[in-house]
Simulated assay, not measured.
Amino acid sequence: MGLDAFVYCRCWQDGLTPPAPVGPVGFDEEGYLSLVVSGGGYTETDAAFDGWTASACPHELMEQASEHLSNWTGHRLFQQALGAAGWSHFPALQAELPSANGGRMPAEAAVRVLDELDYFEQQAVIDDEVVLVDEATEAVALRYVAAYEGVLMLGPGYRAGVDPEGFFILDPDSDPPATLFRSARFRQRVLPSGQVQFSDEKKSVQIAMSPVGDKGTPPEWLRLEKQHQAPAEFGYIVEPLRRLCRAAVATGNPVMWC
């Protein structure tokens, strides 16, 4: 699960494709190329249309560009970094980045986003990030995601995560949610019962939940710290965004979030 996007090519718009075997076809109100009239359910007409889009031009599914941007946590972390650097530098990104699957970004906005991505990579100054690390390896086990109020693990009877005050486990069934455990440095042990024991010098609790970190060999000692982060760390989403925006500018077609 995550955020993907694509940009249609111009082959159909420019008359470079064979006629659709069924039709008429056109862009619907959401921006998708589709049958103007479609019956209920998936019909032979729909199958013929899908076959046409798969083979009518050199672009797979008539897409000039198609990208997986990130899982939703990675997307939220990118938005968090933009906010830390100052949303005033990124008005187009703030307006156009989606908060859920679906929607589109017009090509004229993509022009502005390209400039803002250049600014982010070359000039942005980002605050240090809050992380929970494995003391033995220094590997990051959890990152603070403000959009999720720090919660990154959830299951029956618990919500867990990390925020600027430390690692926490909440009981979501109480009102308000009660804090079962909170610590900036603690030990975790997977017990024979399958529960996980979390302890520090003040408190020890046992909870039926997944351990924090590597599921193969979960870290024993974890601590909260702040780490420097740089724009280059967000290449996983900046580069596919840049490719999508360039395709939108070249075709005049919107970026379709999906």
Rank of each mutant, 00 (worst) to 15 (best):
L3W: 01
V7K: 00
C11I: 06
D14V: 00
P18F: 07
G23Q: 07
F27C: 01
G31V: 00
V36W: 04
Y42V: 09
Y42N: 09
T43K: 11
T43D: 09
T45Y: 04
A47D: 13
G51L: 14
A56G: 04
P58W: 08
H59Q: 10
A65W: 00
A65Q: 01
H68A: 15
W72A: 07
R76S: 14
R76N: 12
Q79M: 15
A81H: 05
A84Y: 03
A85M: 05
S88A: 14
A95Y: 01
A100Q: 08
P106V: 09
A107F: 03
E108P: 04
A110P: 01
D115H: 12
A124D: 13
V125C: 12
D127V: 10
D127T: 15
L132C: 06
D134Q: 06
E135D: 15
T137Q: 04
E138S: 13
E138N: 14
A147M: 01
A147Y: 03
A147R: 01
Y148Q: 11
V151A: 03
L154V: 12
G157T: 07
D163S: 04
D163A: 07
D175M: 12
P192K: 11
S204I: 07
A208S: 09
M209V: 00
V212E: 02
K215I: 11
G216K: 13
G216L: 15
P218I: 03
P219Y: 00
L222H: 01
P231V: 05
I237G: 05
V238T: 11
E239C: 05
E239W: 13
P240H: 09
L241I: 10
L244Y: 03
L244Q: 02
C245Y: 01
R246I: 08
T251H: 09
G252W: 05
G252M: 10
P254K: 02
M256S: 05
